[in-house]
């Protein structure tokens, strides 16, 4: 059996934390793209599409993230796709993120006054132009603080990916605990590392909120 110093523990956790960051970034970017797509088709206003997107959001907000990952991880092989924990975790977290972001952004788009839509329509703009030049630029300003705030949820969500066997920070913590029998130290270090990733994001979100409130006044 090998001896683990505190530095060995921290060093190995830091190596694993790279995967937490990478998974968070991938899920956040891809989830943002899917969320934007859902927002566009939902705002375009076909009632069936609206209902479908609402059901999608309800499904992902009303079930545990762990179950979503399990279904992706165990479901895709049934239709002949061989998925690694990395692919399953990325796909599951992307869907999860897209559902939450599209719901956050919907509120922001709805807060843009109806007059803006009508004015741009009277200038002969089509839906894409209205979104691109009139509505999204205004909605974006309101959307940034809650979006940054939600990124914290994505980072914390990646911890659940450890359960389907993806080796990120939490999984590495479990593996190192099994080798060192020092759960208090190891999980303490794991918690500190998550905190170091998430707390700056939280502070940034709060800073943006304050900034926006001042602009609005």
């Amino acid at each position: 059996m090998s001896e683990f110093t505190l530095w060995d523990i921290v060093y190995n956790l830091l190596l694993a934390a790279r995967w937490t960051v990478l998974l968070s970034l991938t899920a956040f970017v891809l989830g943002g793209l899917v969320g934007l797509l859902l927002l566009m088709v939902r705002t375009a206003g076909n009632p069936w599409v609206v209902r479908l997107v609402r059901a999608y959001v309800e499904l992902f907000q009303g079930t545990p993230l762990l179950m979503q990952l399990f279904i992706v991880f165990f479901g895709l092989p049934l239709i002949g796709l061989d998925v690694s924990p990395w692919v399953a975790a990325t796909l599951g977290l992307t869907l999860f993120t897209s559902a939450f972001l599209t719901e956050i952004w919907r509120g922001c788009v709805e807060s843009v006054g109806k007059g803006q839509w009508e004015a741009s329509a009277s200038l002969g703009m089509n839906f894409t132009q209205q979104m691109r030049y009139i509505v999204l630029p205004q909605a974006l300003r309101i959307a940034i603080p809650p979006t940054v705030g939600f990124s914290v949820q994505v980072v914390k969500g990646t911890a659940v990916a450890s359960i389907i066997g993806f080796v990120e920070l939490t999984k590495a913590g479990t593996m190192i605990t099994n080798a060192t029998y020092a759960p208090f130290t190891v999980y303490g270090c794991v918690a500190v590392m998550y905190f170091l990733i998430c707390y700056p994001l939280s502070l940034f979100a709060r800073h943006l909120e304050g900034k926006f409130r001042n602009v609005a006044r």
Binding site: V155, K156, A159, T170, Y187, A191, Y194, F195
Partner: peptide, 13 residues
Amino acid sequence: LIRNTPFLVQLFF
């Protein structure tokens, strides 16, 4: 501390 760490890690701790 709680809001910036995952529930799973809190549980393990």
